[in-house]
Design a protein around this nucleic acid. Structure first.
Length: 596
RNA sequence: CGGGGCAUGGCGCAGUCUGGUAGCGCAUCUGCUUUGGGAGCAGAGGGUCGGGAGUUCGAAUCUCCCUGCCCCGACCA
């Protein structure tokens, strides 16, 4: 029996000044966590208890499809060197040296280590498929830890890895994870959406994120209320309405116009009395190409051209050109590639490479420019623009790709759907994706297929942020007094509050009810503190326990109160019925969650 | 890494501009009263004012350097 009077639950009346988001404030106030450093937290009794319950659900569900391992958190350099990620991970990886000077790192993910195991042990197609998972502490030297447990440098992750003989097998492993993840998040009481996601620069094809909508989130999700389309903004597309083209001026050929000081698109649009949609804008970058096979890293020029009213999406751009990093071009680099300053850059007669990231400039155009005509763009000459510019006729490019971010209100990309996209903030709680051969190939994992031929197994990688489930649950259900966790992941299902411990009869009744609840298999906390009733009510509301039984004045008449935290409603119940009632409520909640 | 801010008792803050040896609320401890929504009264304990150097008779306060933390941006398989 857990008695509050004996426990360490350091609740705070006021939130520390540097907590911004709801989950951060309440995790601190409710005594779940304490900060040790930037992005480094101590998990106290209630926090650890809740995380343990989340882990139990994750483990139970993962055991349906996979086998649990436990890999080290401290890892030698060599496997990372083999995969190319020792340098690829950059400053996000914590690195250290042992007493002999050998280099090690703290694990931020475990593709390499799982692949080491696979290549050492897997020999035959008969041993496939395999799904191996672990629940492990991960370390990432985040550039900017923030928002309590949402973005931290040490956290707990369930990560799993699949090895299959072929793509069909990978599809199956992926789908198994998709189904199990849906069960996990449902059981944890999260209102989540599965969205299409970018697979990142580190390889992979199909990729899906599990997101919980909240303003505390750092990802933007575009979704269609009509057909259910949902995608991370890094991936989302839309169908654009046609733009009214400008009438050709003069002979219809590109024509130089004097535009003194009009480096901004808004200036040009106003000057020519046209929509920014008739302008071609240029965003110039230097892109980093990681050297492989002993080659050095190198920066290359990339000129991205988009519709004047569109925003470049750097994630899409990185993927399109195959680079690993971008930075804006410096003024002298602009001079080298364009012979012109920012504000007057354009694609006409711009020398560019045939292949992305060659020695010269990569010229990439957004798909929204294809088929357009009579547009306005910079002339690569200070204070001059060109009009009558038609893409394809007046300039060519290295490649065309979707490199823009969609905007709210644009048309849903789904075939035949008339919906308009809405954009919302969300936090990522899980991510599943098809890795392909990146690690198995580079690290030399091979098995023999049924014809005795050596083949490379295909891999998948699947993660769940354990702490993020807790924070997302708090973000989605909190009010001025605190938060309410789903019964499945709350540190306790029910708290029995003895309103006045000075009253021996009340005390005995509270003890009895708590014992009965425990015997019924519920996680029960008995609030037997010698505090005023108000203090105990406030604390109970704060710490997220979904049900509270007040043992007070009416106990002498055989009645107690059952308070439901989520709805702030209470019902009187006979002492003899309350245990069954709580149990029923908690079970109903779980059923409701799994049916939605 | 760029921009902004903060650092004074466990938490929230004042004091810094204008230098004079540290204060308020909450929390903690003791006693009495109170006992259904963060009680009242009385008393008590607790702070090298983030660190270092300097200016000064004297520094929380002024100067310089460093560190930590927060926010915005960049970044973030």
């Amino acid at each position: 029996m857990h008695r509050w009077s004996k426990l360490f639950i350091p609740t705070l009346r006021e939130a520390p000044a540097d907590a911004e988001v709801a989950s951060h404030k309440f995790l601190l106030r409710a005594g779940y966590i304490r900060q040790l450093g930037a992005g480094i937290y101590n998990y106290l009794f209630l926090g650890q208890r809740s995380l343990n319950r989340i882990i139990a659900i994750v483990r139970e569900e993962m055991d349906r499809i996979g086998q649990e391992f436990y890999l080290p958190g401290i890892l030698p350099r060599e496997p990372w060197e083999e995969s190319g990620r020792w340098t690829g991970m950059g400053d996000n990886m914590f690195r250290l040296k042992d007493r002999k000077g050998a280099e090690l790192c703290l694990g931020m993910t475990h593709e390499e280590i799982m692949t080491v195991i696979a290549r050492g042990e897997l020999r035959s197609y008969k041993q496939l498929p395999q799904i191996w998972y672990q629940i492990q502490t991960k370390f990432r030297d985040e550039p900017r830890p923030k928002s309590g447990l949402l973005r931290v440098r040490q956290f707990t992750m369930k990560d799993s890895y699949s090895f299959d003989i072929d793509k069909a097998g990978l599809d199956k492993s992926f789908d198994l994870h998709d189904a199990v993840y849906r069960r996990i998040f449902t059981r944890c009481g999260l209102k989540f959406v599965a969205v299409e996601a970018d697979s990142g620069a580190m390889g992979g094809s199909q990729s899906q994120e599990f997101m919980v909508y909240t303003d505390a989130g750092e990802d933007l999700i575009a979704s269609c209320p009509q057909c259910g389309y949902a995608a991370n903004l890094e991936k989302a597309t839309s169908r654009l309405d046609a733009v009214a083209e400008l009438e050709p001026a003069g002979d219809g050929k590109p024509e130089l116009i004097h535009t003194p000081g009009m480096g901004a698109i808004a200036d040009i649009a106003a000057f020519l009395k046209m929509s920014p949609a008739n302008d071609i804008k240029c965003v110039a970058y230097m892109a980093l190409k990681r050297g492989t096979g002993g080659k050095k890293d190198a920066w290359h020029g990339v000129a991205a051209f988009l519709r004047g009213d569109h925003q470049v999406n750097e994630t899409k751009l990185l993927g399109a050109v195959g680079a690993s990093e971008l930075r804006p071009m410096l003024a002298e680099e602009l001079e080298t590639f364009f012979h012109a300053p920012a504000g007057f850059l354009g694609p006409v007669e711009l020398r560019h490479d045939a292949q992305p990231l060659g020695e010269g400039l990569t010229l990439i155009v957004d798909r929204a420019l294809e088929g357009r005509k009579n547009m306005v763009c910079g002339a690569n000459k200070l204070d001059y623009h060109l009009r009558n510019v038609t893409p394809g006729r007046d300039f060519t490019w290295t490649l065309a790709a979707d490199i823009r971010s969609v905007n709210e209100g644009e048309n849903c990309p789904a075939e035949g759907c008339a919906g308009k996209l809405v954009v919302g903030k969300a936090v990522e709680v899980g991510h599943i994706f098809k890795l392909g051969y990146k690690y198995s190939e580079s690290m030399g994992a091979r098995v023999l297929d049924e014809n005795g031929k050596e083949v490379t197994p295909i891999m998948g990688s699947y993660g769940i942020g354990i702490e993020r489930i807790l924070t997302a649950a708090i973000e989605q259900a909190n009010d001025a007094n605190g938060f309410c966790l789903p019964a499945s992941i709350a540190p306790f299902t029910v708290v029995v509050t003895i309103t006045n411990v000075g009253d021996a009869a009340l005390r005995a009744t509270g003890e009895k009810i708590a014992a009965e609840l425990e015997a019924a298999g519920l996680d029960v906390l008995l609030d037997d503190r010698d505090e005023r009733a108000g203090v105990k009510f406030k604390d109970a509301d704060l710490v997220g326990i979904p049900y509270r039984i007040n043992v007070g004045k009416k106990a002498a008449a055989g009645q107690v109160e059952l308070v439901t935290r989520a709805t702030a409603t209470s019902v009187d119940s006979a002492l003899s019925d309350v245990v069954a009632l709580v149990k029923k409520r908690a079970e109903e909640e779980q059923l409701l969650a799994s049916s939605s």
